[in-house]
């Protein structure tokens, strides 16, 4: 009996240790970046363009660029994702077509981000002649997060009680109106949470925008969706690997990393909080 409990203690110890290691890894990374980055964060850093061959100045164009790309991506992925999810949950639950679509979505979700970059380059930049631009980058990122949005929207739609649909249809309301006026509003919080998580993902991606949208350096802000932009993740990569003053610009690098983390994890945190609030306030 004693050896049985000894094994149990050993195992539980290992299990707790693994949880601790993971937590410490996250906290360690965040604390380290925060400790080194916060001194770089000044009003000027956030609002100015880089100067002196990107060894001084701020990161404003990269912040703006990331915002453009992210908003563009969600404009592509949200409508497409919600419509797809409605089709899968409300119109074609079973059947060959929905099976094919599900397999397609799963496969799309598994494509590595750098392959999305290659696709964006081959299709949007070269074939459709968008050039390296906000448009090409946002479309590439939009496709990248599409499976996430579809998954979240599907889950939210499935969580809407069947009785709501029945009640509406039994009143002689058409299927389309039932979906649009009853099901979709009830699913909206869940869909928005998914969308926000998608935004966070898009904001942090580097590989898909390297060949499709990201510029090494631009002195001016983009004027149209056919312009290249700087972006926070790519800016970090460039400063950390490609400059001639890698050590000198460390403070800038830490600052940029901190801004990106704050942006991405801030977005995730909003989604997590929103989700738990909706769960608590759910009235059905």
């Amino acid at each position: 009996m004693r050896s049985r409990y000894f094994k149990q203690r050993l195992f539980f110890g290992a299990v707790r240790l693994s949880a601790l290691v993971i937590t410490l890894a996250l906290l360690g990374i965040l604390a380290y970046i925060l400790a080194h980055g916060f001194r770089a964060i000044t009003w000027e850093f956030l609002t100015q363009s880089p100067t002196d061959s990107m060894t001084k100045g701020g990161i404003m164009p990269a912040i703006v660029g990331t915002l453009y790309l992210t908003v563009g991506a969600i404009l592509v992925a949200l409508p497409l994702g919600v419509v797809s999810a409605i089709f899968l949950t409300e119109y074609a639950k079973q059947g060959a077509l929905s099976r094919i679509i599900r397999v397609g979505v799963n496969c799309l979700a598994g494509v590595p981000s750098v392959v999305f970059g290659l696709f964006g380059l081959g299709f949007f930049v070269v074939f459709l002649k968008f050039g390296s631009s906000i448009l090409a980058g946002a479309l590439t990122l939009g496709i990248l997060i599409l499976p996430t949005i579809i998954g979240a929207a599907e889950e939210a739609l499935k969580a809407v009680p069947q009785t709501f649909r029945e009640a509406s249809l039994a009143l002689g309301v058409s299927k389309w109106n039932t979906i649009f006026r009853i099901v979709l509003p009830s699913a909206l919080p869940g869909i928005l949470t998914g969308a926000i998580l998608g935004v966070g993902r898009a904001a942090g991606e580097t590989a898909p925008i390297m060949f499709t949208a990201a510029a090494f350096f631009t002195a001016v802000l983009p004027k149209s969706i056919f312009d290249e932009v700087m972006a926070l993740p790519y800016h970090i990569y460039v400063l950390a690997t490609a400059g001639t003053h890698i050590e000198e610009t460390r403070p800038l690098q830490y600052g940029t990393v901190l801004v990106l983390i704050a942006l991405v994890l801030g977005i995730d945190l909003i989604a997590i909080i929103m989700r738990s609030m909706f769960r608590r306030n759910k009235r059905w």
Partner: peptide, 8 residues
């Protein structure tokens, strides 16, 4: 229906 099902 059996169970009251008002809309939210």
């Amino acid at each position: 229906f059996q169970k009251p099902n008002p809309f939210p």
